[in-house]
Design a binder for these strands. Sequence first.
DNA 1: CTTCATAGGCTTACGATGTAAGTCTGTCAA
DNA 2: TTGACAGACTTACATCGTAAGCCTATGAAG
Lengths: 210, 210
Amino acid sequence: MPLSRERVLASAVALADAEGLKALSMRKLAQQVGVEAMSLYNHVKNKDDLLGGIVELVVEEIDVPEIGGHWKQEMRRRCVSAHEVLMRHPWATMLIVSRANVGPASLRYVDATIGCLREAGFSWAMTDHAWNALDSHTYGFTLQKLNFPFDPDEYAEQAEHYVAEIAMAPYPHLNAMAQEVMEGNHDGLNTFEFGLDLLLDGLERMLSRP
Amino acid sequence: MPLSRERVLASAVALADAEGLKALSMRKLAQQVGVEAMSLYNHVKNKDDLLGGIVELVVEEIDVPEIGGHWKQEMRRRCVSAHEVLMRHPWATMLIVSRANVGPASLRYVDATIGCLREAGFSWAMTDHAWNALDSHTYGFTLQKLNFPFDPDEYAEQAEHYVAEIAMAPYPHLNAMAQEVMEGNHDGLNTFEFGLDLLLDGLERMLSRP
DNA sequence: CTTCATAGGCTTACGATGTAAGTCTGTCAA
DNA sequence: TTGACAGACTTACATCGTAAGCCTATGAAG
């Protein structure tokens, strides 16, 4: 099987998924596809191009909103799908929010989003604001969740170590919340849909009362 | 003036502000404070510790919500302040969302947030959700704005180059929006407050109708 | 069948980077 | 006077992206 851009990019995604973005070096990637580092440059302009390529692969996985459908349902599906995809590729969100993404998958993604909102009757400005607010929530929530230091299942027990290591006296409210988690009264988990529905409901109200 | 942790951290913030996170290397920083690279390690455990330190300096700049005050107004002030501070230090948001922040400034910041929301009558779960949703918007919006490839002032004219470089035929809605921007019918700018108020209004409704 | 351009490998080399390990020196307490 | 120690410095190493150039198999042109 000859080397190709597709194979290089797919392998890069696999490596980043398995060992994180930091571990994705040209040498390690080359080794994984059975080649020397410099050979990758026959298929990829440079590392930045490689990163752009793997971002495109990830964006391709996201459900695009259907332009004829009901905007609220379609945008909800789009955002939930984005969140799921980004959780499957924990390195991807960071990359997306720190680069200009102008590949075909990314363009198609924003085009469908704009189309869906416009079709529903939003003005240009409102379309822009809605799209931006929904993406802000999607990226922001995903990054916070990825950054959360414990596995959700073991949050309660981990909280005990956490509380032990940090002087909680000066932080009474944080301390109280940690107590609630430890005692099982509050699971401390956040759902993507909470903020998402707050935004969608707000947008719906603005649409019906222009 | 002798070297100290404070001086190292302050200088690191200045360097990152001026030349970006990528330019913040131990050697460059050392040079800036007039010392050799390894000497920094007398004041900082390693580079990660340095990054944690400068994040703390930034978080310290953010307005903390007042616990007795009206929650909506206080949280709004807190988020707007965070956004402003993060725009002043364009490298900081990335760092905040990719690390566990457990310094005193960060802990004080979350403690005041939890306290303000609890005092207002939110349940533990709602407090957690509200805090998380507001932060998601703050970080997500800021990252998107920082990543936006043009200066807001020159957006309209830059859009022309953009459109020229990308085949717009397959992306009719994106194309149409670009046209609106070029013709001055839509400025294409997003405000932090749009999504923020959507969230705050939604939270207010949930609080009054439990 | 020969020639020769080309695509796509490979090797070598360079300047960053973070930091481990060890050294030197000036200050101050005993 | 001595001796410990804080805080500077030097050297050295592995790892990174990638510039430059080399080598060889393939396949089209003569």
